[in-house]
Nucleic acid binder design. Structure first.
Lengths: 147, 147
DNA sequence: CCAAATTTGTTTCATTTGTAACCATTGAAA
DNA sequence: TTTCAATGGTTACAAATGAAACAAATTTGG
């Protein structure tokens, strides 16, 4: 029996990871240089900008972050006065998070940059390749259960 | 002008990252539980198992790891006596890394598990979806320059 | 031949991360 | 009620990471 070999360069988990790492790294330069944000902070800003108001738990679900990451990102954005916490009327454990004017301004500044980034990334692909990426990613999301 | 919003759930960098994270996390359970390896250690084992012998720099290039990760992973595998270093004859800065019997045995144990993992992941997709994933990933790799 | 620049790999230090413990509050069960 | 489990969120501690400084060897350019 021949010795079985795994070709790392063709191994899907590795390829996906490297891809995501490269893209994420490139994009992070934008919010890092522009706003001095970490990835959890960017996701928090982005989530609240998109949805308006969320609790920490909801934020974690929406942006796939562990609750400690959420907690720390929220604390930092609060320190910058980019968001405020409003206690829930019924459940005193819960706080509703909302961006302040300043937070919203930062969000509004980031949105077009994010869109351009994505557009330029996809622009490097042919129409068919773009379609493959989109449906491939969607299919994997479904396959991985949850969302 | 309406306020521009970014839908995080549709944003490619986020989706890619979340996907890779989920897949990688799931797969890491295998080499973590089975061999007590970290990801850099797994990649080192995998790279050397596949190629036979490499220098640290080559390892870093093949497996997309920062040189400090390589350095630490190699040190740990050496501590376990899973690999040995052989000084290069011409350049005394360079060491050639090779798996020992024990390292090779661990590698051989992992290869089928990795293949099964990948196969089962792809098995959750239809033929067309698999094709989309494969060509989408390949296209993005090319688009991101390098490899 | 020599000084400066480059390369290989390790180490140090600060930051980020994850796990687990934790506190406070709420809900459910008895 | 009173207790016990579950939930929202923070914190403490240990491990993983990245940037930068580093030592040693090599290459390059006068």
């Amino acid at each position: 029996m021949e010795p079985e070999i795994l070709e790392l360069e063709s191994f899907l988990p590795y390829r996906l990871y490297r891809l995501a790492d490269a893209v994420s790294r490139e994009f992070s330069r934008i919010y890092k240089e522009r706003q001095g944000l970490t990835r959890p902070e960017w996701r928090t800003l982005s989530g609240l900008g998109q949805r308006g108001t969320m609790t920490a738990t909801e934020l974690g679900e929406q942006s796939a972050m562990h609750k400690t990451k959420v907690s720390r990102a929220v604390a930092e954005l609060e320190r910058r006065r980019w968001l405020t916490r409003t206690p829930d009327g019924n459940d005193r454990r819960v706080e509703h998070l909302t961006l302040t004017k300043a937070g919203l301004a930062a969000y509004r500044e980031m949105v077009p940059l994010a869109k351009v980034f994505e557009r330029e990334l996809l622009a490097r692909l042919s129409r068919e390749e773009r379609a493959a990426v989109v449906s491939g990613v969607a299919a994997l999301e479904v396959a991985l259960g949850g969302k």
